[in-house]
Simulated assay, not measured.
Amino acid sequence: MNEKRMLYSDCIRIYEVEETFIDSLGELGLVRLSGDGDDRFVEYDELELLEQFIRWHNDMDINVEGIEALHHMLMRVKLLQAEIDSLKNELQFYRSLI
């Protein structure tokens, strides 16, 4: 097994989720799955995000479509926050010239 990925079947067993849940996340592009058939994998760098989606699903009873919407909104907020930080830095620079 590659050091940078986990067997799909191990992921299902460890996280105790249904295949359809992870498949749906993969189809929506929320989690990157690789391989096919019995040799499917989840990349290790995707596991933190997958764990977050599993918590949203189990703890807050959010379906896959809701997870997609929530994830999209959070990514948008992060981008906007980065833009705000950049503009604050630019404003601070111009204020320092006065």
Rank of each mutant, 00 (worst) to 15 (best):
R40Q: 13
E43H: 13
W56C: 02
R13P: 03
D23V: 14
L33D: 04
E83K: 08
M6R: 08
L49E: 01
L30I: 05
I67N: 01
H57W: 13
W56Q: 00
N89I: 07
E16Y: 12
S24P: 06
M75Q: 13
M75A: 14
R55C: 00
L74A: 11
I67T: 01
D23N: 13
E65T: 15
I54H: 03
D39F: 15
G26L: 06
D61F: 15
I62S: 00
A82P: 11
M1F: 13
G37T: 06
Y8M: 07
M75E: 08
R32P: 01
L97H: 09
L49I: 12
K4A: 02
F93L: 14
M75V: 15
D38T: 15
E51K: 06
R5D: 01
M60Y: 15
N89S: 11
F93I: 11
K4T: 12
G66Y: 05
R13F: 09
D36K: 15
M1A: 09
H72W: 12
I62C: 03
E19N: 11
I84H: 07
L50Y: 13
L33N: 06
N58A: 13
D10E: 05
V64A: 03
I67C: 04
L50G: 08
Q92H: 13
I84T: 04
G29K: 00
D61T: 06
D59I: 12
F53L: 04
G37I: 11
